[in-house]
Design a protein around this nucleic acid. Structure first.
Lengths: 141, 141
DNA sequence: CTCCTCAATGATACAAAGTATCAATGGTAT
DNA sequence: ATACCATTGATACTTTGTATCATTGAGGAG
């Protein structure tokens, strides 16, 4: 098993939730997915390996992972919510308003200020997401 | 008319889109709305002033404003997309993973680094959104 | 290891959110 | 004032998300 998968399962168990075969299948599929997935996309993917898993369970598991701060739904263009893994740390995106393309970069520069804000509001951080919006090279003619 | 509303209309016209009564009604309602609205919430609100405006038009106008970088859909808890106004500048949210509450703060600290990133990728910024995820005071017992 | 309990599941049915289509309308350039 | 074409709104539809509840199986107690 992927160590990333294992880490997520540990968080689930540590928080008093049961380790079921459905959750294992869903989390495995999620970790092995692309940058972002739709709930229904993920359900399809899970069923390729574990046909018995219901759609509802995928939705519920994503909600749970969201509450545990492992996953975050974002809007990619429009339509269904796309889930991104926050477990690995944080995300920094340059998003084009026209073509909806996403450029990702790693630098976590804001760390200090984020922590200060958290302290001010007595907030317990698990991750963060920075989205910078505008037009990409191609769409800005 | 609100100067904020006017500014948005200008952007619409500058980009070659027509200034219709439906768009005027929708943008006015949007500017006068709370921090974030659902597409259907906005449609209801618009119809109080301009009953003839159809739901489709609200959806289409929100898409347009999104493309122009004036508005941004985010996921608030779950369900429908919530739109936030990016026109005024940027947004910084502390979001609770459990109760989905949002604390907003103003400090725009990362300006310098955001601009550097934009330069590196030849990206033309219109706004940014920083989401910090975790548990709020109440949900972290 | 076996039993028991209750969290978790999955089937079903439903509600809400978003999309496609197209004839009719009305902004705006001329 | 006219004509063109972007925009609209009505309708019908698909997709996405939610509620319910009888059944199941994970994991602690004995």
């Amino acid at each position: 098993m992927d160590s990333e998968t294992k880490k997520i399962l540990d968080v689930v168990v540590e928080n008093g939730y049961r380790l079921t075969s459905a959750r294992l299948a869903i989390i495995t599929a999620l970790v092995n997915s692309a940058e972002h997935v739709t709930a229904d996309d993920l359900a399809d993917k899970v069923r390729q390996q574990a046909p018995h898993v219901g759609r509802m369970t995928v939705y519920r598991t994503l909600d749970l992972l969201c509450e545990l701060g492992i996953v975050r739904p974002i809007y990619q263009g429009t339509g269904a919510a796309h889930y991104i893994l926050m477990a690995k740390g944080s995300h920094h995106h340059l998003i084009c308003n026209r073509c909806h393309g996403v450029i990702e970069f790693e630098e976590c520069f804001a760390a200090m200020l984020i922590e200060e804000m958290a302290k001010r509001f007595d907030f317990h951080i698990s991750s963060h997401l920075l989205e910078i919006h505008g037009l990409c090279e191609n769409c800005y003619e």
